[in-house]
């Protein structure tokens, strides 16, 4: 019957875009579709690149590059001293470099963790991830791995500079390799611990600014409080509890582990090294914190999105 009226309304809606679309036509995709492992890996790579601002705006590259430079300057200076004074060893051990750079690493964690997880929560992107062939646990695994790798690269790079510099300075290879290996073990523990804590805090603070502040607070306030308490106890000759106090902040925990097991110099008051019993507890607490934060992240994401 009335061929005029309906098609007019129909065409009005389709005409502007329709013209070009019919020329090209829709093509179906019959290519490969990868499974969960690929999706997890892609998310890992994308997150890791994002942590250093790669593939993002120039402005978001500034902070990671600046912090990374600050991290490497001491290593370069240490190497330079060794080379120019013909010394037989470097003036600082790799493990002590990591402990000494803790404030910088804290800043890096505080900058990166919200970038990795808070954005997806804040901008409600989680449902898009969840509606794809991955599970919540894949998301957590990819983000955790990316965060840990980012911190490891950040803390490991100056150690690499020291190691290579030491070799160039003709220091003994065996010594250098040994302390570098100890340094890498510390880097691994340190990265896993800080990735867990950083992501957990960031995942409950969808607003980026809060996340940054909260992570800095969680990493530094207990650290300084514990150091102060340790100092007070030490000068009052109550040395017994000092080694146990170290368990109360992530920073002193790592510090205790490196001086006990990784041939580091202690930065506790009086350069005390924790006892065997305390050392075992330090390791246990570290492992529990890493596993616990990972488990809590999974719990957190069971409720997130959609």
């Amino acid at each position: 019957m009335s061929a005029e009226t309906t098609p007019t309304t129909a065409r009005a809606a389709e005409a502007p875009a329709g013209a070009s679309i019919h020329d090209i036509g829709y093509r179906h995709y019959d290519g490969e579709r990868h499974g969960r492992a690929y999706v997890r890996r892609s998310l890992y790579v994308q997150s890791l690149r994002g942590a250093f601002g790669i593939g993002r705006s120039a402005r978001s590259k500034v902070l990671p590059i600046l912090l990374l430079t600050f991290m490497c300057v001491p290593a370069v200076i240490i190497v330079a001293i060794a080379v120019f004074t013909d010394a037989h060893s470097l003036v600082a051990k790799p493990t002590n470099l990591v402990i000494g750079a803790m404030p910088l690493i804290g800043l890096f964690v505080a900058a990166v963790a919200p970038q990795l997880v808070s954005r997806d929560l804040r901008f409600n992107t989680m449902p898009l991830y969840l509606s794809r062939p991955m599970e919540r646990s894949d998301y957590v695994a990819a983000k955790f791995a990316a965060m840990a790798t980012a911190v490891a690269v950040f803390t490991g790079l100056p150690l690499l500079v020291m190691f290579l510099g030491g070799l160039l300075g003709k220091l003994k290879f065996a010594d250098q390799a040994r302390s570098f290996a100890f340094g890498l073990v510390l880097v691994a523990l340190f990265s896993l611990l800080h990735a867990g804590i950083g992501l957990l805090v960031a995942s409950v603070t969808p607003r980026r600014g809060f996340g940054v502040g909260a992570i800095i607070a969680v990493l530094t306030i207990p650290y300084f409080a514990v150091n102060m308490l340790m100092g007070i106890l030490w000068y009052n000759d109550r040395q017994g509890p000092v080694e146990w106090l170290g368990l109360l902040s992530p920073g002193t925990l790592m510090s205790g582990v490196q001086s006990k097991y990784l041939d580091g110099t202690s930065d506790f008051p009086g350069e005390i090294v924790v006892s065997d019993v305390a050392g075992a507890v330090y390791l246990l607490v570290t492992a529990l914190l890493i596993a616990g934060s990972y488990a809590l992240l999974n719990v957190r994401y069971r409720r997130a999105g959609l």
Partner: peptide, 29 residues
């Protein structure tokens, strides 16, 4: 495919980057 009701787009990336990422999240090479 799923298109949620609420806003779900990060404001600081381009549509191309975002959709490419989401395509990879769906398993596309």
């Amino acid at each position: 495919g799923y298109m949620p009701e609420h806003d779900c787009l990060p404001p600081d990336v381009s549509a191309t980057e975002f959709v490419v990422h989401m395509a990879r999240m769906a398993g596309l090479p």
